[in-house]
Design a protein around this nucleic acid. Structure first.
Lengths: 148, 148
DNA sequence: AGTACACTGACGTTGCGTCAAGGTAT
DNA sequence: CATACCTTGACGCAACGTCAGTGTAC
């Protein structure tokens, strides 16, 4: 059991449904940086890192974005990771407000992209349903023909 | 202008928003076979081929399935392509009915997969919306703090 | 001292993009 | 004959999977 609630790479991987290899790859591509390394240079992940990995996996599996697209979506979240310290330390309300506004803008961009994806899926579903209806109609005709 | 309403590869490609290279690749992977070749062995695509390409592109772009998954989804559609001739030629109602039933089953499998995809996208959207709401609440707090 | 992790390369696969070299339609 | 297509290879890149060789926690 790792110290201080930090997870090692295969524990983090199991927690979010990724492989250690994928996580290392994402780190190499700049999607995240584990918040600590152990004495023997093991990567150690905290709860925020794990949440970030879940987001990455969601964008990959559910939304089907490429790694470079995800990098774009999380770009200022790297800023966020940096901002977290600033945010917690800052007593300047204006500073905290600015950081929150940026985080909100990023989330809303993500929402817009997900909505676009959903619409395309819905349209595709409708098309296939239409084709299915035509086949059902043809079946009904054939059945009528048999009974006649 | 190509003969008999058949399209050459770059025309078919433009019609569905794919590249000639991608189409040749899909052919190589067994996702479709252009219904004719010209005298000088140009691939020629009819309306059914084009529809099939649209389906493939939809599964790729909208649903994010891999080529081998799409191959599975279209597997008995290769049968369908073969069945088309049988279907049109057949006067046997039982034969026509069997082919239609199989086509319907295939379409319904596709619908089920699309629905699963859509649900995952919806769940992800909900999660992000929740996070956005938390940030909005924090912003409201900060604004209240400023006004106080 | 064994086992189950970890690390950093490095090469293999998938889904094409992109020349390369040569043939053909108009 | 020019040019804009076509053909079949073949190599390049992305997103990892999968060893390989080595070190470390328990």
């Amino acid at each position: 059991v790792p110290r201080q609630g930090l997870l090692r790479i295969h524990e983090a991987a199991r927690a979010v449904g990724l492989t250690p290899r994928a996580i290392r790859f994402y780190e190499q591509q700049g999607l995240l940086t584990p918040s600590a390394r152990s004495a023997c240079s093991y990567r150690l992940f905290d709860e925020d890192d794990v949440q970030r990995l879940r987001t990455i996996k969601g964008f990959r599996d559910d939304a089907g974005f490429s790694v470079s697209e995800i990098a774009g979506l999380l770009a200022d979240q790297s800023a966020t990771q940096r901002d977290k310290a600033i945010y917690l330390a800052s007593t300047d309300v204006g500073q905290r407000r600015r950081i929150a506004v940026e985080a909100l803008a990023r989330l809303e961009r993500q929402l817009a992209l997900l909505d676009a994806k959903r619409e395309r899926l819905t349209k595709m579903r409708t098309d296939i349903e239409t084709r299915a209806d035509r086949v059902r109609a043809r079946l009904a005709e054939l059945d009528a023909e048999v009974r006649a």
